[in-house]
Design a binder for these strands. Structure first.
Length: 418
RNA sequence: GUGGGCGUGGCCUAGUGGUUAAGGCGCCAGGUUGUGGCCCUGGAGAUCGAGGGUUCAAAUCCCUCCGCUCACCCCA
């Protein structure tokens, strides 16, 4: 028996309601904020991701799906959404369009990870990128989109964590300080943190081991080591969030796993679920990324949310997506002549914009109505010998349990109006 | 990649060495002649995750693999 590959899942019809609901709300919101949809390929030149996410990060070190195509080019299945959009921004000269470029996307993301709750090898992300402006008000706008998004879905109990990790001018000095602080305790750090100290000092901050947490707690904080520009930027973002009435928590231990982030970083997580892979969304500024990819220096900010994790949260919080109200009609028949009429009528109804399924095969009327019932249709149309002879059809209201004969010629019009 | 728990029809579960693997939900059909939802009856559907081993005998014990799940790493 074949199964879906590890860490992947089929989204069955019964689950689709959640996904469609989320997509609809997101699209509506983006339109409201002036963000336009963009779609990029599922795979890209492998170097694009190594370059941007960072060669030392886990994502590129052990989580990418990379393969050589038939011409020997190394390709990588998109492990995140931002880099491809930056590539597209540069490739299509979007800097010539009014700035900032406000874009959003829905994309499948691929990471070769050990699957667990809320973490899959293929998952869906909704993300927003605002490219071409460094104004802290844009940071606040993007964060506002994220918050409004969750709001419009009816998901509550989320907290917005906010931090600034500085820029290429002030971060190196900060990292030195951080390393200095940790060096004094290096022998007692967990093995992971020892590695982090060398490879990715920022990540030291969110270790979950008790001892390492103590060290992190007393470690120098990035917000206290920002250069004047970054400091002002951060304060300004905070100020705009206050103006917008968006509640947030400053979290000096919030760092992000991708190398390209600068200044503002943020994460949205369910209240009281520290640890675990509970974050439903996150993002930040990446002011150097476009330049790094060969474009002009271009500031930008964005975020992404994990759709599957949102669905998980919706279920936990009992948020049910509104059911599509499409009324369905079932066509039942008895006998070969009636079947021919049924096939014809079914087509006419569909041409008339009425959703309809017809019986198939040769079954008792009882069986046919039983199916109509389980399908939850509003009306059943019954055609038997009598109806064929009199050019009529029995129109049965399933909820009321009442039925009447109507002329074959007027049934389409009748249903169109109901 | 590391560690823990688990794997019985489509779904949920009983069965923890011994005749044809049990039940619930769902599905299909019947309860007379062309009518649903309740009820009753019947039916289909499981090589008990896969492979190997122990035993007269294994869903039940052992090993390996695969998968699911939780935690770590990391991330949405």
């Amino acid at each position: 028996m074949y199964k879906s590959p590890r860490g992947t899942a089929d989204i069955l019809p019964g689950e689709q309601g959640y996904f469609r609901f989320i997509e609809e709300r997101a699209a509506l919101l983006c339109q409201l904020y002036g963000y336009e949809r963009i779609d990029t390929p599922v795979f890209e030149d492998a170097r694009l991701f190594i370059r941007t996410i960072g060669p030392g990060t886990d994502i590129v070190e052990k989580e990418t799906y990379t393969f050589d195509d038939r011409s020997g080019q190394a390709m990588t299945l998109r492990p995140e959404g931002t880099a491809p959009i930056c590539r597209a921004y540069i490739e299509h000269g979007m800097h010539n369009l009014p700035q900032p470029m406000r874009l959003y996307y829905f994309a499948s993301i691929f990471r070769y990870e050990r699957p667990q709750k809320g973490r899959y090898r293929q998952h869906q992300q909704f993300g927003v990128e605002a490219i071409g402006d460094g104004d802290p008000a844009l940071d606040a706008e993007v964060i506002d989109v994220a918050c409004q998004f969750f709001d419009s879905l009816g998901i509550g109990n989320l907290s917005l964590q906010l931090n600034s990790i500085g820029c290429k001018l002030c971060r190196p000095a900060y990292l030195e300080e951080l390393k200095g602080h940790y060096s004094a305790h290096v022998d007692r750090l967990c093995s992971d943190c020892k590695a982090r100290l060398r490879k990715n000092p920022l990540r030291l901050m969110d270790c979950k081991k008790p001892y390492c947490q103590d060290i992190a707690q007393s470690a120098p904080r990035s917000i206290e080591h920002l250069c004047p520009q970054c400091k002002e930027h951060f304060e300004s973002v905070v100020n705009y969030l206050l103006i917008l009435g968006i509640p947030f928590e400053k979290n000096h231990r919030l760092v992000r796993g991708l190398d390209y982030y600068t200044k503002t970083v943020f994460e949205i997580q369910p209240q009281g679920e520290e640890g675990a892979q509970s974050a439903v969304g996150g993002g930040g500024r990446y002011d150097d990324l476009i330049e790094e990819l060969g474009g002009k220096p271009t500031p930008a900010i964005g975020f992404a949310v994990g759709i599957e994790r949102i669905v998980l949260n919706m279920k936990q919080q009992g948020v049910i997506p509104p059911a599509p109200s499409a009324q369905m009609v079932f066509v039942a028949y008895l006998g070969d002549e009636a079947k021919a009429e049924a096939v014809k009528l079914t087509a006419e109804l569909r041409r008339g914009g009425i959703a309809v399924v017809s019986n198939l095969g040769d079954r008792s009327l009882k069986a046919q109505l039983r199916q109509a019932n389980t399908l939850g249709v509003a009306y059943a149309l019954i055609i038997g010998e009598e109806e064929v002879d009199s050019r009529t059809v029995m129109l049965r209201d399933m909820a009321k349990g009442e039925q009447r004969k109507v002329s074959m010629d007027e049934v389409v019009g009748l249903l169109e109006r109901s």
